[in-house]
Amino acid sequence: MDVLHSTSPDQIPSLTATDLRSRFLIEDLFLQDQVRAVYSHQDRVVLAGAVPASGPVTLPTFPELRAEHFFERREGGIINVGGVGTVTVDGETYALKHASCLYIGRGARDVTFASDDDGEPARFYLFSAPAHTTYPTTLVEAGNGTVRELGDQATSNRRTLNQYIHENGVRSCQIVMGVTTLHPGSMWNTMPAHTHDRRMEAYLYFDLPEDARVVHLMGEPKETRHLLAANQQAVISPSWSIHSGVGTASYSFVWAMAGENQSFDDMDAVAITELL
C-alpha cells in the first residue's frame, strides 16, 4: 500500500507536472493477480484495484491500517470496470457485470475477487472510507441505480449519470459513488466545474480507448492545472479543487466521494468564465 499525503492549495503553483502526477494521479492501480492499494490522507480514503487474472485474489489486511481485517473500521464501494467477475464477502458470492456496483459494510472480514473468464479478467475498483456503523452489503447491477440525464449535445457534455451509493439509494456512512457515461460525440464531464468543501472526490476514468486521453482539470478556480489521464487511471481531488475534464474520445468514469455529508447536489459551481 502506497501512502499519499495531503497537499495544500498554496503549494500547487510551484509544482511541476511530474510533482502533480505523483501527488494526485494513480497510474498503475490495476496489476495482474494483485490487489494494489493507495491510502490518501484526503479524508483517509483508500483506492484499490484488483485483477484476478489467473485465479482468485484476496483483499489483504494492509499493515498501514492497523486493523485485524480491511473492513474492521471501514466501508467500501466496488465497481467492476473489466470483464464479468464475482466478489465473495464472508462466504456470500455476488456477480458483477461491467459497471455494476457492490457496497460492502463495516465489519466484513473475508473478501475475495474472481473472474468468470481469465482471458477477459474482471477489474475491480474499490473506494473505501472510515465508517462509524454497519450497513448491509448490497449489489446494484449496472443501470439499476438512480439514473440522471445531464448536459447537452450542443455543449459536448451530454451524459448519463448512474447514482449507486447515495442518500436515496444504497445506504452508507459517508461514501457517495456512481458511474457517469458520456454519450457518443460528447467529451466534457462535470462542466461547469465545481468544488465542494465538505467532501473530497476521486475519479476513475475507464472505457477510454488506449490511444485517447482525458485532460483532467484541477486546482483552485483561480489557479488551475491539468493532468493527462489514460484508461483506468484515477485522480484524487481534494475538497478545495475543481474536478472536470475533457477527453479526446468519449468515456465513462467512476466518481466517489467521502467527507462531511452525502448530499450529491451540495456543490459550489464555478462558471467557465471564472476559471484561470
Results as ranks from 00 to 15, higher is better:
His132Ala: 03
Gly145Glu: 03
Glu149His: 12
Glu141Phe: 03
Tyr164Ile: 01
Thr137Ile: 03
Asp117Ala: 11
Phe124Thr: 00
Thr146Phe: 11
Gly143Trp: 13
Ile104Trp: 02
Ala129Gly: 00
Thr137Val: 07
Leu126Glu: 04
Leu139Glu: 06
Ala114Tyr: 05
Arg123Ile: 05
Phe127Leu: 06
His132Trp: 04
Leu102Asp: 02
Gly151Asp: 04
Leu102Trp: 01
Ser156Asn: 07
Asp118Met: 14
Gly105Leu: 11
Asn162Cys: 12
Ala154Met: 08
Asp116Gly: 08
Arg159Ile: 14
Val147Asn: 09
Asp110Glu: 15
Pro130Phe: 04
Arg159Pro: 08
Arg158Lys: 11
Tyr103Met: 07
Ala129Ser: 10
Asp116Asn: 09
Pro121Gly: 09
Leu161Glu: 15
Gln153Asp: 10
Pro121Arg: 06
Tyr135Gly: 08
Ala129Asp: 02
Asp116Arg: 11
Leu102Ser: 03
Ala131Tyr: 11
Pro121Met: 15
Thr160Pro: 07
Pro136Trp: 05
Leu150Thr: 04
Arg123Tyr: 04
Gly105Thr: 02
Leu102Ile: 07
Asp117Arg: 08
Leu102Gly: 07
Thr138Arg: 09
Gly145Arg: 00
Leu126Asn: 02
Thr138Gln: 11
Phe124Asp: 00
Thr137Gly: 01
Gly143Val: 12
Tyr135Pro: 05
Ala108Met: 02
Tyr103Asn: 03
Tyr164Asp: 14
Phe127Arg: 00
Gly119Leu: 08
Ser115Phe: 05
Thr155Ile: 10
Thr112Tyr: 08
Leu102Met: 06
Arg106Gly: 06
Leu126Thr: 08
Asp116Thr: 06
Tyr125Lys: 04
Thr133Leu: 13
Phe124Arg: 01
Arg159Thr: 10
Pro130Gln: 08
Ala142Pro: 01
Gly119Arg: 09
Ser115Arg: 04
Arg158His: 12
Asp152His: 09
His132Met: 03
Pro130Arg: 11
Arg123Ser: 08
Pro121Ser: 13
Asp152Ala: 07
Val111Gly: 01
Leu102Gln: 01
Ala154Ser: 08
Thr112Gly: 04
Asn144Arg: 15
Pro136Asn: 02
Gly119Met: 07
Thr137Gln: 03
Phe127Lys: 00
Thr155Asn: 07
Thr133Val: 10
Ala108Leu: 01
Glu141Met: 06
Asp118Trp: 11
Tyr125Ser: 09
Leu139Ile: 10
